[in-house]
Simulated scan of single mutants.
Amino acid sequence: MLNRLESLTQRVGGSNELVDQWLQARKQLLIAYCALVGIKPNKEKHTPLNEKALDNFCYHLVDYLSAGHFHIYGKIIKQVEGSTSPKMALTTKFYPKLQANTESVMAFHDRFSEIEFDKNMRQELNQALSEVGEVLASRFALEDQLIQLAAETWQQGNPDAANTGTVQHPA
C-alpha cells in the first residue's frame, strides 16, 4: 500500500494542496498501521503488537476517515467542476461505497480502541488487523479513482501543467 501511495503521490503530487494533505494523512495512517502490525519498511523482522501502537493507529484511523468525509470529499468534488457538474454524478457513485467502507473500519475501531490486551485477544486482533488492512486497501483504491478524476480535470483546465508537472486549479 505504501508503494502504491508513493506512485500516486508522484503522479498527482503538487496538483492541489488539499490532495497533498490528504495523501500525507494517508501516509501517516499507513505508517501507524505498519507499526501496529509490526512491519518495518525494508526490514524482514516483525515486532510484537503493543497497546501504544494500537492507540496511535486508532487515532490516525479516525482522523483520516473524518477528514475524508467531513472535509476532503466534498471540496474535491466541488473543485472538480462544481456541485451541478456531470462529474458530480460520477463521484456520487463513490460515496456510498466509501460510507460502507467507513462503517466496516469503524467497527474495528469500536472493538479495539481503549481495550486492555490479554493473550486471548492477540489472535482476534491479528485477524481483525488483516481484515482492516484489506478494507483500507479497497478504500484507498476508491479514493485514488476520485483523486485521479480530480487531477485529470484540473490538468484539462490548465494544459501547460502537463509540461511543467504542476496543475493549477481555480480558487
Rank of each mutant, 00 (worst) to 15 (best):
G13H: 04
I115K: 09
I39N: 12
Q123T: 09
L65D: 12
E103V: 02
A171E: 15
F70R: 08
E114P: 02
C34Y: 15
K97N: 00
L65P: 01
Q24I: 15
W22Y: 10
I72D: 02
E152W: 03
K27L: 11
K45V: 01
D118H: 02
V12Y: 05
T92V: 03
A67C: 00
Q156T: 03
G14P: 04
K78S: 09
V167A: 04
A171M: 11
K87Y: 09
S15W: 03
H69P: 07
H69D: 09
F70P: 01
A141G: 00
T102W: 10
E143L: 07
S138F: 13
V135H: 14
A25C: 08
G133I: 00
E143H: 03
F140K: 12
L54C: 06
Q148E: 12
Q168R: 14
N3H: 09
K45R: 07
I77V: 13
V19N: 04
Q148K: 04
M88G: 01
G68E: 11
S130T: 15
H69N: 11
V105R: 03
N56H: 12
D118W: 00
G13Q: 03
E143N: 04
Y95T: 14
L98D: 07
N56C: 01
F70L: 13
L146E: 03
P96H: 01
Q79L: 04
W22H: 03
T164V: 05
F94T: 11
A89F: 12
K27S: 10
V37Q: 14
F94N: 12
Q127M: 10
K97Y: 08
V12T: 13
F117P: 07
E6C: 02
V167N: 05
N42V: 12
L149P: 06
A53Y: 14
H60E: 15
S104W: 05
L142Y: 11
V132F: 06
P41I: 12
T102G: 09
A128Y: 02
L54D: 07
E6T: 10
E6M: 15
Y73V: 07
V80Y: 05
E17Q: 15
L8G: 01
L30T: 05
T9A: 10
F57V: 02
N56M: 07
L30E: 09
E44Y: 10
E114Y: 00
Q145F: 06
K52M: 08
H46T: 13
K43M: 01
N3C: 10
H169P: 08
G133Y: 00
P96S: 02
I115L: 11
M106H: 02
H60F: 09
A32S: 12
N42P: 05
P170V: 00
G157M: 07
V167F: 05
P170L: 06
T47E: 11
Y33M: 14
N163Y: 15
S15T: 10
Q145V: 00
M121T: 09
Y33K: 14
